[in-house]
Simulated scan of single mutants.
Amino acid sequence: MDIALMSIALSQGQVQQQASLSVMNKVMDQAQVNVDFINKMMTGADVKAIQHAAQPHLGGNIDINV
């Protein structure tokens, strides 16, 4: 194989590796954002808001029999 072709192949491999690492870093950053959001939503008073969002039909009516 010609040295120029080997150099091109090596460069293409390096570009592909850099692109893969870049995509992986973006995925990891988004995962951290998701974790931060979930942690924020699970604190204190936000738990009731999550429960209501998950089951909005519960707690809206009271049945009273006398």
Rank of each mutant, 00 (worst) to 15 (best):
His57Leu: 05
Met42Gly: 04
Ile3Lys: 15
Phe37Gly: 06
Ala53Asp: 03
Gly13Phe: 00
Gln16Gly: 11
Asn34Thr: 13
Met28Lys: 11
Met28Gln: 13
Ile62Ser: 03
Ser7Glu: 15
Met6Ile: 11
Asn65Asp: 10
Ile62Met: 02
Leu21Phe: 11
Asp46Glu: 15
Gln16Trp: 07
Lys48His: 09
Gln16Ser: 14
Val15Glu: 11
Ser22Trp: 03
Gln17His: 14
Ile8Ser: 03
Met28Thr: 09
Ala4Gly: 06
Gly60Phe: 00
Met42Trp: 04
Val66Glu: 10
Gln16Lys: 15
Met28Phe: 11
Gln18Tyr: 11
Val15Ser: 09
Ala4Pro: 08
Ile50Arg: 10
Gln12Pro: 01
Lys26Asp: 12
Val66Asp: 10
Gln30Arg: 10
Pro56Gly: 00
Ala31Asp: 04
Gly60Arg: 06
Asn65Pro: 05
Ser11Asp: 13
Met28Ala: 11
Ala49Met: 09
Ile8Glu: 06
Met6Pro: 05
Ala4His: 07
Asn25Tyr: 04
Leu10Trp: 14
Met1Ala: 10
Pro56Phe: 01
Asn39Thr: 10
Asn25Asp: 06
Val33Gln: 07
Ser22His: 03
Met1Thr: 09
Gly13Tyr: 00
Asp63Val: 12
Asp46Pro: 03
Gly13Arg: 00
Met42Pro: 00
Met6Cys: 12
Asn39Tyr: 06
Met24Ile: 10
Ser7Val: 15
Gly60Pro: 01
Ile38Gly: 01
Ala54Thr: 01
Asn25Cys: 04
Ala54Leu: 11
Leu58Trp: 00
Asp36Cys: 02
Gln55Ile: 08
Met24Ser: 14
Asp2Pro: 13
Met41Ile: 02
Ala31Lys: 07
Val33Phe: 04
Leu5Asn: 08
Lys26Gly: 10
Asn61Val: 07
